[in-house]
Amino acid sequence: MGLGKLSFTALKGVFSKPATRRYPFEARPPIAKSRGRIHFDDGKCTYCSLCELKCPPDAIKVDRQGRVFAIDHLLCILCGACVEACQKGSLSMDAKHGEPWTEKQKLSWHTEAPPKPSGDAAPKA
């Protein structure tokens, strides 16, 4: 038994550097594996829609004919299933977290007109 068992820790705190990361002013070094936000690279995508199939909350919608990839970041649970499913490496996990929005952007992402009309030779699993 003792009174003030924590007083030493408290006193030490007064004279040492606080544990705080001063976030908006000093960002901490990013952790490589960190799951922050899904990054989409439209150059590589073949619109195979495998990611849509694997997405647990159905945040990704792929229009194979219209070659449209859409992701709703306000639905994405950052599990990374789409990144694992993607054969072309067009989806990757960004370590930086997503920004807050003041308005919902439902289908917030890229629309891509078909650059080469070679049809959908999508690599189906």
């Binding site: 936000r37 970041h73 306000l74 994405c76 649970i77 950052l78 599990c79 977290h97 997503g98 920004e99 807050p100 929005w101 003041t102 308005e103 919902k104």
Partner: peptide
């Protein structure tokens, strides 16, 4: 709602 913060 004024601000939406994404992430899960």
């Amino acid at each position: 709602v004024d601000v939406y913060v994404p992430g899960c």
